Amino acid sequence: MLDQGSVALAINVDSGEGPQLSHGDKVRILETVLDTTDISIIAGIASRTTDASVRQAGEFSAAGANSLSSFGPPPTRASRSIPRCQPRTTSPSPRLASP
């Protein structure tokens, strides 16, 4: 990737396994990548609470991340309203009816 002009790596971001990893695993992955390369690192922060996000930001910065990218929690079933189809209670407009 470096040969192709990449200037940074995004680690533990919102796609792939990032959101499912434990916090300790995320820190170990970040440290491993930082030990392996000199390229800039963008560390992904994904948490269900603000306190946990702030903690992750501090620890990822302390581990050596050059920048951070934050992802909000996934929507819960209660927060996403799925509209239901309602049966038609009136007859169609005469203008739309077949001749």
Rank of each mutant, 00 (worst) to 15 (best):
T36C: 08
T49Y: 01
R55N: 13
A8V: 08
E59M: 11
I82T: 03
D25F: 02
L21G: 04
P74H: 00
P94L: 06
G44D: 08
R48K: 08
L21Y: 00
P75Q: 00
S53R: 13
D38K: 14
D51W: 04
S47A: 15
R80F: 15
S22M: 09
G44N: 03
V33D: 06
P92R: 13
P83R: 15
R84W: 01
K26D: 02
N12R: 05
G24M: 07
S69E: 11
A62F: 01
S93F: 10
G44Q: 02
I42Y: 08
S6V: 14
E17N: 07
T89R: 11
I82L: 10
S67P: 03
L34R: 10
V54T: 07
L34Q: 11
S47G: 13
L96D: 15
S79K: 03
R80C: 12
V33H: 04
G58H: 08
I39N: 04
V7K: 11
A8H: 07
S47Q: 12
R88Y: 14
S93W: 10
G58N: 14
Q56G: 00
F60D: 05
T49W: 04
D14I: 01
P19W: 05
I41Q: 01
E31R: 15
S81G: 14
H23K: 05
S53F: 06
A63N: 05
D14T: 10
A52M: 12
I45S: 04
A78Y: 08
C85E: 14
T50Q: 10
I29S: 06
S61G: 02
G18H: 06
P83N: 11
S6T: 07
P94R: 15
I45G: 01
D35Y: 01
R77F: 03
A57N: 10
G5V: 05
Q20G: 10
